[in-house]
Amino acid sequence: MRGGGASGLRRRVLPGFGLSLGLTLAWLSTIVLIPLLALVLRPLELGPAGIWASLAEPRVWAALRLSFLAALAAAALNLPIGLLAAWVLVRYRFPGRRLLDGMVDLPFALPTAVAGLALTALYAPNGWLGAPLAALGVKVAYTPLGVMLAMAFVGLPFVVRTVEPVLRDLPREAEEAAATLGAGRGQTFRRVILPALAPALLAGFTMAAARAIGEYGSVIFIAGNMPMVSEIAPLLIVVRLEQFDYAGAAAVGLAMLFLSFLLLLVLNLASRFWRPA
């Protein structure tokens, strides 16, 4: 029913509104809201000074910095790869296209522990890719580079799947018009296609980054987890929990949430700036 305000509680034609909303709210509160409330309230036991002290350790800073910087780098790496994949999948027909299309979702479906294990095996100094890279002097496994690589793996489908529908709906007439106006293919891509895809790229970047920041399973195997070097923030939470430092663990969790929120806010503002309408 349309109309809010005073008439918001008026009768409804279709049945089951009260039941379904009640179920939803009960489900949402018990599973998500109350537990997250615990996360927000728990660090308060420490008091502001206590929270600060708990977070001000260099090890915490290093972990948070690694999680966020690696996530941003991974999302940035995903932009060209994701755009290429989306472009090829939408615009071209070739044998094996459907297989490629299905493969893109693999990181969504593959359990993170499996991905972590597999990436480690590949990029370890004796792995298929690790060995040749080591010969070139590039060390991937057990370094921040490995962390970023694992994050790129889990984030890639977000970019592809947000760009794909926009690219599919892009009117070909615009490109044809550009061609009739004398634009070369490269110019058309830069001036007509890319600007139209920019909001979707940014959205995909945001989602990939958000996912990567919190990623745990695929990262910890390849990271090596050296404090101050390749230890990610979620692992620090686990470490603190193992030391029964609940409030400290919650403080790190809260800091992660807060920083993620800040990042999302900035990226959303950026997307609004991009599309003033």
Binding site: L36, G214, Y216, P234, L241, A250, L257
Partner: peptide, 23 residues
């Protein structure tokens, strides 16, 4: 409501476990 339902997607899995330990 829809945004709240999607909230767990943007929370680190570790935090998703942590909240239950806190409770």
């Amino acid at each position: 409501l829809l945004a709240l339902i999607e909230l767990p997607f943007s929370v680190s899995p570790v935090i998703s476990g942590l909240v239950w330990v806190l409770l």
